[in-house]
């Protein structure tokens, strides 16, 4: 994206005019894209505007006008009413624990497949991939039933275990193919120095693959944070619920107050947005790492 339009043939007198015409086309296209961009973010903009309104302001002046006056009332009401700090902590604990454990399990699996080159590794990779693709619906009832029997229903640990299994299936598939091209000279050198398999994993493989592991961690974190189906089934108590589940529970209870709903949506969005801005690079890299084998 550095060199602007290389090699415009500038010999004829017509060339500059043609270039200018092409330029107009580009500006028109840019305008179209900006307009589409605005349409895409407009629902979010509406949420921001209406989260700061009072209920009477909303009823009389509608949602297109700016708040008059701006108020944090709805935000603070949602904050206390839904016990937002607790929901935030729940989401954070579940996402962080899931991502760390899922990366660890993926690393161990992929070490055996990609570097250990165990027999039947292709079958294993396909098995892990298909396990990740299977819809949760097909195993949710047995999981729900067993979780109830063993006391993991309605606990964060129960949800974490399920997510670690599903996400590490993807991580194994991805890492195994990355490790397939791992520089063997390094491994052989370490082995000649007498390093054990366990030591080679942590002293050679882990440091070198750290960038990929960070990408995996980030992906797992966002996926877990945004996941809806499994927490909806497994977490029924207010005290263990995640941020998205809390919002949908709130919507059921207080259907009337639109500004409160918007405040809740805005509060629930802020952590994801912050995360997005911090890890934007890693995330876009992650999405693409998944696409290049």
């Amino acid at each position: 994206m550095t060199a602007p339009v290389p090699g415009i043939p500038a010999r004829t007198a017509e060339a500059p005019r043609r270039a200018r015409r092409r330029d107009v086309g580009r500006w028109v296209m840019l305008a179209i894209f900006v307009a589409v961009g605005i349409v895409i973010v407009s629902p979010m903009l509406l949420v921001v505007v209406n989260a700061f309104k009072t209920q009477p302001d909303y009823t009389t002046r509608g949602f297109l006008s700016l708040p008059q006056p701006w108020t944090f009332d709805q935000i603070s009401t949602y904050w206390t009413q839904s016990d937002f700090p607790l929901k935030l902590a729940n989401s954070f604990i579940i996402s962080a624990a899931t991502s760390v454990l899922a990366v660890l399990v993926s690393l161990l699996n992929a070490y055996a497949i990609g570097i250990g080159r165990v027999r039947g590794r292709l079958t294993l990779v396909v098995l892990f991939l298909l396990a990740n693709l299977l819809p949760a619906e097909a195993m949710i009832y047995p999981l729900y039933y067993v979780a109830k029997q063993v006391g993991l229903y309605n606990t964060q640990l129960g949800v974490i275990i399920i997510f670690v299994a599903i996400h590490s299936a993807f991580g194994t598939y991805l890492l195994a193919s990355v490790f397939g091209t791992f520089p063997t000279a390094l491994l052989e050198a370490a082995a000649l120095d007498g390093a054990s398999r366990w030591r080679i994993l942590w002293r050679v493989v882990f440091p070198i693959s750290r960038p990929t592991l960070v990408v995996l961690f980030t992906l797992f974190f966002v996926w877990t944070w945004n996941e809806f189906y499994i927490p909806l089934v497994m977490l029924v108590d207010d005290s263990v619920q995640t941020v998205p589940i809390a919002l949908i529970a709130q919507q059921g209870q207080h259907q009337t107050s639109i500004p409160l709903l918007n405040a809740g949506a805005l509060l629930s969005l802020v952590p994801t947005l912050v995360f997005f801005f911090i890890f934007q690079r890693t995330l876009t890299r992650g999405v693409t790492v998944g696409a290049v084998k």
Partner: peptide, 23 residues
């Protein structure tokens, strides 16, 4: 290397394959 599959294998069986078969 099969030792390294223990955590992942147990999870895969207990959370995905067995529940899927049970369902």
């Amino acid at each position: 290397y099969w030792l390294y599959f223990i955590p992942g294998g147990v999870l895969l069986l207990a959370v995905i394959l067995v529940p899927f078969a049970w369902g």
